[in-house]
Simulated scan of single mutants.
Amino acid sequence: MFPEAPCKYGYEECKATADWLLDHAPVRPLVGIVCGSGLGGLAEMLKDQKVFSYSDIPDFPQSTVHGHAGRLVFGTLKGKPCVCMQGRFHLYEGYPVQKITMPIRIFKLMGVETVILTNAAGGLNQDYKVGDVMIIKDHINMPGFAGSNPLCGPNDERFGTRFPCMSDAYDRKLRQLASEVGAELGYSNFLKEGVYCVLGGPSFETIAECRMLNRLGADAVGMSTVHEVIVARHCGMRVFALSLISNQAVMDYDSQEKANHEEVLQTGEQRSQQLVKLVSTIVTRIDQHKREECTRSDH
């Protein structure tokens, strides 16, 4: 069996799906939010909701993971038009990497300017605790080292340049805004900033792998997000991402601890209200933040 050709998820296919959604959606979204495991509650913050099951959207992938609802939710947040993915797609589900990231291209073609991504991740940094929230400042793309990159294949200039820069992938101003909002809300004690490493999954990491990744400079490890970030930056969208540390990676051979998906979902549930507050406040201030930047640059 040969893998599916990337052209199946090209500009025309993405545009057809984006146009269908815009014909049926109540708003043209400016912000796109992707909810990770156990974090689907973020979509509930949207007002005047219109919900689409992934199975009802032409050519849209289907989510197969417990904790991922498989719904696209349109609505407004303090008047700002948003779209929210309740459930994302992963390499381990067997999808080609171009199909996993297709929704991000659809976001772009619907008018989205800023993408906010969330995930549940294992903590590699020994100073992190379960329940901490890590603002992602950079990533290590392990599958990319082996040639699994969503930009492989012919480049379509209508999306972006052939060789996009990734040193500024995670928007510095949005990270700063998140830290300010976190401090105001009293979340500083569990808000961190660090490097996220993506692996293919679905098996959790071995002890040797965790030790290696930690020595390479990774603070948290997971199975998503990075491919979406690459495509969002290729399309010229601003990116903000955060990880909920849902389990501590096992680094000791004498430990009796074992990583499991139930723990991931449980931690998401416990921290969900605070994450909703954090993300919704950031969203409402994105424009204000941009205006302040413009004002500063005018002086």
Results as ranks from 00 to 15, higher is better:
E4Q: 12
Y11A: 10
E13R: 13
E13M: 11
W20E: 14
A25P: 00
A43K: 02
E44K: 06
F52P: 11
F52T: 14
S55Q: 15
D56N: 15
I57Y: 12
D59Y: 12
H66E: 11
T76S: 09
L77T: 03
K80C: 11
G87Y: 03
E93W: 04
I100Y: 00
I104E: 07
T114K: 10
L124V: 07
D127F: 03
D127C: 05
G131W: 04
V133P: 02
K137P: 01
F145R: 08
C152Y: 09
G160E: 04
T161C: 06
P164A: 03
M166R: 00
Y170W: 03
L177V: 11
E180K: 13
L185D: 04
N189E: 14
L191Q: 06
S203L: 10
F204Y: 15
F204D: 10
E205T: 11
E205A: 12
I207H: 06
A208H: 04
M212F: 07
M212N: 01
N214C: 04
N214H: 12
A218M: 07
D219N: 14
G222H: 05
E228D: 03
H234S: 05
A241M: 06
S246A: 14
N247I: 03
M251I: 04
E257P: 07
A259M: 15
H261F: 05
E262Y: 05
L265I: 13
T267A: 15
G268E: 00
S280C: 06
V283K: 08
T284G: 13
R285K: 12
I286Q: 11
D287K: 08
H289N: 15
K290I: 04
E293T: 13
D298F: 08
H299R: 12
H299F: 08
